[in-house]
Amino acid sequence: MHMGVLLILFYYSTAYVTAAIRHNKVLFPAAQRTRRSSGFLVNPVFQNSLKEVELLYEFLFSGLELDKKLKISVKDEELASLRIATKLDVLCNDIIPKTIPEIKRLNSALVTYATPLTKEDFERTVLTMVYIAYQAARVPGSSKDIWADSFLKLYQALKKDLKEY
């Protein structure tokens, strides 16, 4: 009798630990590190209000530049001078993945993610898709297909997340 109770307790504690580990999976590990030059705390988020959502739309609509070192910047100098543009800079240049292996790691983590995405992870995934679109437009030949495939897989993961939750 006592052995059965112990086995049940062991089973439930194992299930709890497994669920906690899966729930605490970090999709964007770079978000846990800060850049010394930024005044922001760990895990920055761009969109906290409707005004910031509108600003993000303006930033994206005005266009972004992608230099040879893969640094993303806002084309419009007036918009780039806004204080909130620094948050976008940190998100785009320090947090989102920029290489195909990093993007594949993100996609595989999204496919196995058991809970709805947080607004931070959703925002970063969308910004990653924006980066991928810029890269796909920029690279020549067959590399374009690799970037396009990465974009499609992230899109499907986001669509699945939106449908399920």
Rank of each mutant, 00 (worst) to 15 (best):
K87H: 07
T115A: 00
V17H: 10
L82C: 09
Q47K: 12
D145Q: 13
A137H: 07
V90L: 11
E65M: 11
Q135F: 12
A137C: 11
S13W: 10
I8Y: 15
T86I: 13
A133F: 03
E123Q: 15
F10C: 08
P97H: 02
F59A: 06
E52G: 08
I146Y: 02
L162E: 07
Y57A: 13
L158Y: 13
N93Y: 06
S142H: 08
L41F: 01
E54Y: 14
L9E: 09
L9K: 10
V53W: 08
E120K: 04
D89G: 09
Y57T: 12
F10W: 09
Y113F: 13
L91Y: 01
Y131N: 07
R124W: 00
G63H: 05
A157C: 15
Y11G: 13
V45L: 15
K71N: 14
R105I: 07
K25E: 00
A30F: 06
E164M: 10
S13G: 08
L106P: 02
A31T: 00
N24Y: 00
K51M: 11
R22V: 03
V53S: 14
L7F: 12
V130F: 07
G141Y: 14
S73H: 10
T118M: 01
Y57D: 13
K75T: 11
G39P: 00
T125G: 09
